[in-house]
């Protein structure tokens, strides 16, 4: 069981993520959009959306730092355990609470404003469920851990080591066996969320417009006469009736 969950599942998630992203990029570019509902409702969105997105950005950075940077490195630069956790928990708490508050506003808006509700995608219900589940479980795990309810478990000696072992293709799944349940559930929800990225509106995170900062303002394009012929109807386009 541990082997399946912590040794095999991560790679299944990775394959589903990469395959899905490639499929969307090749066959469903038309479907890739933020699917913004700002046209219908702006007041709540203008508070909730930046809170959620910026909060999430910091949460992701926090995860990367926590999971990828080995404890020996921070020890080497002289950051002791106590300082590290104080920093991690304080910044993480601010970002996490912002993100949770943001998604709270966004989901409330999605459910309560009829036009926004109708503009939702079919995949939204599942995606919101998994997203909120992952976020709340993450906060729960952090709170339990900081409060000492998980004994003296240190994720930097457990989860982080296991996570890095995944990249070496020698998953140290035994390490995960005695990880507290809250962390385990958080990770499983995280897997579900990552799997959902290419199959839901979350795909828009892969299209972050970084190149905009460097391109000239006005884009010119030439018609390509070789591409003028009719092309087969592609996914998402409405049929001519």
């Amino acid at each position: 069981m541990d082997l399946l969950l912590w040794g095999v599942l991560p790679y299944v998630v990775l394959v589903l993520l990469v395959a899905g992203a490639i499929w969307r990029g090749r066959y469903d570019r038309y479907g890739i959009s933020t699917h913004s509902s700002q046209l219908h409702e702006s007041r709540m969105l203008r508070i909730g959306s930046p809170l959620f997105h910026f909060g999430m950005a910091f949460v992701v950075v926090g995860h990367v730092v926590g999971l990828l940077i080995p404890q020996s490195w921070t020890d080497a630069v002289g950051v002791d355990d106590h300082t590290y956790h104080l920093l991690a928990v304080s910044t993480g708490a601010v970002a996490g609470v912002a993100a949770v508050a943001g998604i709270g506003i966004l989901v409330y808006r999605r459910l309560k404003v009829p036009a926004v509700r109708r503009a939702g995608l079919r995949s939204d219900r599942l995606m919101y469920g998994v997203l909120i589940g992952a976020m709340l479980l993450g906060l729960t795990a952090t709170i339990l851990n900081s409060a000492g309810a998980t004994g003296d478990y240190d994720y930097r000696e457990g989860i982080s080591v296991w996570f890095r072992s995944l990249f070496a293709f020698r998953p140290d799944y035994a390490l995960m066996a005695d990880t507290p349940l809250a962390f385990q559930l958080h990770i499983l929800f995280g897997f579900a969320l990552i799997t959902l990225i290419p199959y839901s509106r979350l795909i828009h995170m892969f299209t972050a417009p970084v190149r905009y900062l460097f391109r000239p303002y006005v884009v010119y394009r030439r018609r390509d006469p070789r591409r003028q012929a009719q092309r087969p109807l592609r996914r998402g386009w409405e049929r001519v009736r």
Binding site: V218, V219, Y220, R223
Partner: peptide, 17 residues
């Protein structure tokens, strides 16, 4: 065009012809 210049994804364009 201001719209083309504002498009973050570079989806908007002015046809050269």
């Amino acid at each position: 065009p201001a719209c083309v210049s504002a498009c973050p994804s570079g989806a908007m364009y002015k046809r050269a012809e």
